[in-house]
Structures are given as C-alpha cells and as structure tokens.
Design a binder for these strands. Structure first.
Lengths: 226, 226
DNA sequence: GCAAAAGTGTTTGGGGTACACCCATGT
DNA sequence: ACATGGGTGTACCCCAAACACTTTTGC
C-alpha cells in the first residue's frame, strides 16, 4: 500500500477582474491521467514524516523558502480504486501563500500554473484522480478558518495594510465587506495585527498604516461571514 | 508502507462523581507495547476504504450496530519511528457513542474498558505508540465541535431530555452551564431538537419534555463555551 | 406543604451593522 | 479645490448572561 501527499496551494491574485482565490495546478506528464490537470503531490519517502513530505513537494513545485508558507494537514482519502495503478492512500495538505510568481513545472509535471478556483475542474475539464473533491474540501476549510484564525495574513506579504487584508477576505469569501467595520474589527482583535509604525500610499488616498501579523493563533471575537 | 486506522471512541458515563467523558481503551495482547493500554485500531484491508475500516474495527470492539455511532475522520499520523516494527501511517477516527455496556475485548486485545479521559495516559502510565497525542487531539476536536454542530446528541440515547443533553455538554467541556439559558438556546436552535410529545419524570421534579435529534447539521447560532 | 427540576420573563451589557462624518494625502 | 481611500463616532439591534419567578410533578 502506497502513501502520497497531495497539496492544495492557494493564493490570492488578480485574475483580470480584481483579486481572486487561485490554486496551483500541474499538468500531468505521466500515466495515469496523462495531460489532465491535477494537484501537485507525490509519494512519501521511507525516511520522512508527513509534514516533511508535504514541505518537500511544496518546495519542489514553488521554490519557496519553507517558513514563508502556511502548511496544514486537511484529511486523508483512500478509496480502493482512486488510483488505477495500485492502492494509494493520500494525505491532503492545505498551503496558503502570498501572491507568487508563476511556478516552474516540477520533475514529473508537464506544466504548472495558477488557476482561479472558480475555473479549476471546470474549464479544461475535471481534475485527475479525486482531486476535485480534495480541492472543494480545502477551499471550504480555508473559508471557514478565516473566520476564527489569523490565517488570512498567510496570503499577504510580510507587511501589509488593512485594505490589503480586507481584499484577501473579500476574495476568499466572495463577498464585499464594509471597509470601516472591517478596519475596526481586525485592529480590535488582540494579537491579530502589529503596527510597524510605517505608512504607505500605494493604494492612493490618505496614507494607510502598515502592519505585520501578530502572535495570536485564534481570533477573539471571530470575523463572521454572516 | 502499512496503513492502519485508530479509533478514539468517546462516551459520557458516570465515573463515581457524576457524568464524565470516557474513552475506550484496550490492553495490548501482543508486541510491541505488550500489556500497555492503547486505542483500538488495526490494519486497513486491501479491499476496504478508510471509513469502512474504521467502522469494521469499531464493530469488532464494541459490537454496536453501525448506524448508532457517529464516526468522523480526524487526522493522519506518520512519523517514521512511531511503530518499531515497520513504517506505519495511521488514520485516526473519532467515534461518539451513547453510554454503552462494558465492551468485550477484541481478537488481539487482552482487555478493554472505559477510562475517564482525565485518567487515560496518566493512571496506568502513558498509552502505547503516539496514542496520547491522538487522544488529546480528538478530545479537543470533540469539545470544539459541540459548539457549532448538533454532535452532542450522539452521546445521548435516541430519546432524551434537555437536562440530559446539558449534562453531556457539562461533562465534555468540564464546565457547569446555566440550565435556563441552556434550555432556551438548544430549543431555539432550529433543527437541533424535535419534540416527541412525550414527557418523563426520570430526573425527578416537574416532567420534562422528551426530544430526539433534529435534521440540522450545524447550529445557528452556535453554543459557545466562552 | 415542601423539595426538586422544568420552563418563562426581564434586565442589562457587549458586539454587530449601517452609515454619517472627519482626516491626510496626490493631482 | 477635489477625488480617493483611511480611519472614527454613533445610533440601533440582536443576542447572551444573569437571575427572579412560575409551573408541575413526587413524597
């Protein structure tokens, strides 16, 4: 029985009509499902643990330093026929990254690119294996986690403004938020944001204060989608 | 590489000082960790999926009909040295059951019993493998899920009173709750409880209305520990 | 009657939404 | 001066905590 890790790498990037949630997909260069789009992933090696395997695959696909990406286990999938070659149990990981350059294709992939989640699994057809389901589960988990954890900062650069953080929430949830109330809520949640003291005018208008993520691991009170 | 499922089976039962959260443990009858207490579990067979393997192990250990127990996947653990025999990745499942008779020992277990979670891993020493960690993760998940899902009903018999449901929450969370506000909240959450029309005086005092679980899958609004 | 538990009403405070308003910059 | 976005103040509403109070049984 083989064990793999699959990665749902999400980011927020402009898709032509404003910031949108996007997922990293690779075009398979081998059978099965040759030519189909799939989540990046690969086999767990005998000497590495599960988070280690996920981090290795992530580094191979994105070339990112390990510390700059949030990585968290989601769930495992092991239907006997999910891989036609042999019995494979896969452990799915969720990775959240700031807007990255277009990734390079990994060793066993023909191509790799960011795809808006609204089009993934639809536009060039369903994903390989059961990856449509993995992706749907991951997106729902990410949406829920933004409510009660400071995870949205994982989509931002190290330093960011409240408006940039708000655009992350709006992209992931797909809803517009009131800028004034959003500002009050996130600056009021203790440990969520730490002011750097700097300001920026990169968004135009009055200069915005610049923050970095604070030490909090949960949001009190939570931000609700309502 | 081998794949197993491990089960954290939780129930609420009287431990001498009122209702308390308890976990099903088995005494290992084989090496490794012979004589130590552990979570029930076993290898996934080549022809069964992960939920199927969990349900089979659960039935072998408790003898319960499959429909009466809530079963949900928690997480996977695969540190290379967690089993001294060979590389094993385990998928941990959480099962919630109403108060059951003392279970029979399974095929490869010397003994099986309910242990209050406060004593598990402490009283006769640490559990086998990394099961202390699995248990801690599972208990935290169960506590969190009671807040925003109707899962507490899985600890109750098919028909129950509001007070019985409240004692479940108090046992799992370890906090006393105001009976009046609790009553208003659970009866007000749409789809949580369905009245049967019957009443009972098994708790003494004024007769209590009897309920069964409703169709809701999430609680609006949630019950918060705060 | 009295104890015990079920269930309801009422007060009060905190947090959410909606939105008016002011602030600080670029052009 | 004006547009643009940052940030604050405030009124209103809903819900949750706290607790007084009524209801319905067993003994």
């Amino acid at each position: 029985m083989a064990v793999t890790v699959d990665l749902v790498v999400l980011t927020v990037r402009d898709d032509g009509s404003g910031p949108a949630l996007a997922v990293l997909l690779v075009e398979r260069g081998e059978e099965p499902f040759l030519g189909r789009w799939a989540l990046p992933g690969g086999f767990v090696r005998p000497d590495e643990d599960l988070p280690g395997a996920a981090a290795r695959e992530l580094a191979e696909e994105t070339g990112l330093p390990r510390g700059s990406v949030h990585l968290e286990q989601l769930a495992s999938y092991g239907t006997p026929d999910r891989d036609p070659r042999q019995r494979v149990v896969t452990v799915c990981y969720l990775a959240l990254a700031p807007d990255l350059p277009t990734p390079r294709a990994g060793t066993d992939a023909a191509d790799a690119r960011w795809v808006p989640v609204a089009r993934a699994g639809v536009d060039p057809g369903p994903l390989a294996f059961d990856h449509d389901r993995l992706l749907a589960d991951a997106v729902e988990r990410a949406r829920a986690k933004l409510e009660y954890t400071p995870l949205a900062t994982a989509f931002c650069a190290e330093e960011f403004t409240v408006a940039e953080l708000r655009r992350v929430y709006e992209a992931v949830w797909g809803t517009p938020l009131d800028p004034r109330n959003f500002h009050r809520k996130v600056t009021g949640a203790s440990g969520f944001l730490e002011p750097t003291g700097a300001t920026t005018t990169r968004d135009g208008g009055r200069p915005a204060r610049v923050f970095r993520r604070g030490p909090a691991t949960a949001l009190h009170p939570p931000l609700l989608r309502s």
